[in-house]
Design a protein around this nucleic acid. Structure first.
Lengths: 196, 196
DNA sequence: CGAAAATTTGACATGACTCAACTGGAGTGG
DNA sequence: CCACTCCAGTTGAGTCATGTCAAATTTTCG
């Protein structure tokens, strides 16, 4: 499947559009091939695009004063990723967005997105749906973070996203799940201080 | 300010609409007076509405097997609250939504919301903006949760939402911030095990 | 005013972190 | 194709942040 087919199908799965409307939509995007570790968003710079993942894995993360990285979001095929606070408000980013594997993404610029939404309300509906579903997903993430232990969070992740595990280094997964690399290692080896 | 004025102003601050468009929008809502502890969303039931807070404080929360409550979201004037996973997908709720104080809200039913969005793309734009900003706010919340200590989370909250503190019992704030009641108490009294 | 709920405090327990050392692959270049 | 390096992952030991439990105190509100 080409990138264009992928984004068109993604659109069609969410709003009813004609073939021509799907074409117009797809043409606002630009395909970008990313190499592992390549950055597309960096703190201090304006986030000009949002990214639709066609293939590969990306993540957003933040670093603290001591250089410690914390992974905020992960994205695989059919997911979107960017620094939303930066992109939506068109202010400097605080996050990095990088490819964890070689990847293919479709980038959509802020301006082109505005044009799409102005040109045809169906595109507006589409972005509303994408945002709402993201909101719901993040609500689930917040619940998990507040209510589950490190071990439960890991197990929930494995259950929900088994396909992710291959491509994500453990130290990145650990920071996404809110625990140290070492502790995740212990969990995976069932050596979490269970006495006896 | 009446509830109708409040929601019209809220709309106008986000999209350009005529007075008549603002009226139509406002009339889709129904005002509801809530008493402290009154529930508007309950697990197992369909979430028929989203709620715009005109006055007072509401929260959403979840309970685990042992009856422990965890506060997922807080809402004051001009905030929206509901169980998004339930409302958006029109599936049974997993959260409670309750008033923490006597409150005035405007409720919008799922069906009326669909009608609004179909009738006029400006309303569609409005809900897209609301969802996107919610997404950005939740991204900030996730970052805070992953990168800050309990004490820092409390201090960030106090700085950002000083006005909330009056109306929110500490045990609820503690669960919102992801810590125990007792630990928040110690933080507030500066008795967080600082040796010496 | 009185009962119930919320907060505080102390003592203790523990989940999770840090640091440091070790292991094991994956490249890379000779 | 071996030796070297580098980075991710593992393991152990010790520590710390935060939780739990229970009792005392204070506040709230019916």
């Amino acid at each position: 499947m080409t990138s264009e087919e992928a984004i068109k199908q993604f659109l069609k799965n969410r709003v009813e559009v004609s073939e021509q409307e799907a074409d117009v939509f797809a043409q606002a995007f630009r395909e970008k091939k990313l190499r592992r570790k390549q950055l597309v968003v960096q703190p201090g710079f304006l986030t000009k695009h949002r990214y639709y993942v066609v293939d590969g894995v990306l993540r957003s993360f933040i670093t603290d004063d001591s250089g410690q990285e914390t992974t905020i979001a992960l994205a695989v095929k059919d997911w979107w990723i960017t620094d939303y606070n930066s992109f939506i408000y068109q202010q400097p980013a605080t996050l990095f967005v990088e490819a964890l594997t070689n990847a293919t993404v479709l980038q959509l610029s802020y301006e082109d997105e505005q044009k799409l939404k102005t040109a045809n309300p169906k595109y507006e509906t589409f972005f509303r749906i994408v945002a709402e579903r993201g909101l719901a997903a993040q609500q689930r993430r917040i619940i998990t973070g507040l209510t589950q232990s490190a071990e439960q969070r890991y197990e929930s992740f494995v259950e929900r996203y088994p396909e992710f595990l291959h491509d994500i280094p453990q130290y990145i997964l650990a920071s996404y799940l809110g625990m140290s690399t070492e502790f995740l290692s212990r969990i995976r080896n069932n050596r979490v201080s269970k006495k006896g």
